[in-house]
Write a protein that binds this DNA or RNA. Sequence first.
DNA 1: CAACTTAATGAACATTGTTCATTTAATACA
DNA 2: TGTATTAAATGAACAATGTTCATTAAGTTG
Lengths: 204, 204
Amino acid sequence: MARRYDHSREELHKMILQEARKQVIEVGIRSVSARKIAREIGYSVGTLYNFFKDFDDLIMHLNAQTMNALLENLQRVDLANIETPEQRLEMLAHAYILYTRKNQNLWNCVFEFRLPDENKRPDWYREKIALLLSLIANIIEPLFGDHGDKAKMASAWVLWSSFHGICSIAYVERNDKIAIETAEEFTNNLILNYFQGIRSRAQK
Amino acid sequence: MARRYDHSREELHKMILQEARKQVIEVGIRSVSARKIAREIGYSVGTLYNFFKDFDDLIMHLNAQTMNALLENLQRVDLANIETPEQRLEMLAHAYILYTRKNQNLWNCVFEFRLPDENKRPDWYREKIALLLSLIANIIEPLFGDHGDKAKMASAWVLWSSFHGICSIAYVERNDKIAIETAEEFTNNLILNYFQGIRSRAQK
DNA sequence: CAACTTAATGAACATTGTTCATTTAATACA
DNA sequence: TGTATTAAATGAACAATGTTCATTAAGTTG
């Protein structure tokens, strides 16, 4: 059959990504295949290739969604009544940890799924990272003077990649509760000391 | 043919891992296969399975080698005449960055190659990590009093996982020179501020 | 109702990890 | 020396993978 119109083009596109998402969550990227996705949504393999260039492309689209969801979570953090930059960044880190741990297979998929050709990382990726960085940059703004824009962005980079590393390692071989506690302890440790360092170095 | 004795058991074992290493370096883990390794060393696929439980097991052995090489590199860093903990850790980070960037495909293989069953991470992995941590712990020792052992180990954890994250992200989409410079800039930034934070918080 | 266009299909192909009965060569023993 | 035993290298076989594309069926248009 063809042109079944059981579902519109857009619906089908969404269905494929939804099913991919579901399977990555359940069994991890290494156990997901094009055929399994197709079977589960009731279409044939070939159909997936009418929507995505190849399997990597499909996964890259899933990763875009994951990054979006993570970012939305972070942007939803209410910092209105939080006084110190330390506390504000701790809350952001908290949200980051919660989302990435609760969606660990999806998050692994984003950061472990290396494209064969590293150099061709898509634009949306760069954009998401830039957004993430700006969230941190805004929070640490008060620690830097008007002329400290470069130093501020450098610190945002350092903090984010450190969060990333801390989570990567804290999540291994731990249950949810312990993993989250560990990641929080270490990110808070980092924030406290790093901020203190920035502050006292600024006074000289 | 069988029992060819072209090579001893140990030689063959070494040859397999050597060839795997060579191919991972050249094309990355995603493009390495059991058959290609076998073909290149002049044996059949089946032979690999006389030495390793499965392909994951083979790669895990390669990863053990990589971790060993990295550790040896770090242990070889001469800190004899280096005064401050800051400088000492900067030198360690420098060696870490140099090795992991120059052997990027091998390093990716260690950290991105997730076993299907996460919980069964082999013992050697834990040991290597412990060794790595102790290297850092020794360097930061002077910053902590006699009773600061727990705080010291926590800081070692924070620093190492942050290095890991910084490198992970600094290496993406950059050539060797820029990648190394970026990673060094950020690790130094981290070390300087974090140490300053530890120091000034200790005075209170 | 015929012609056209679109998209869903699934057989086909090359590769992958993995197994295991078969074969072959070295060794032990007579 | 000749035979039996043992160890190990083999590669055909299997199921599963990503990917392609000629074929087919179902809507759309005239």
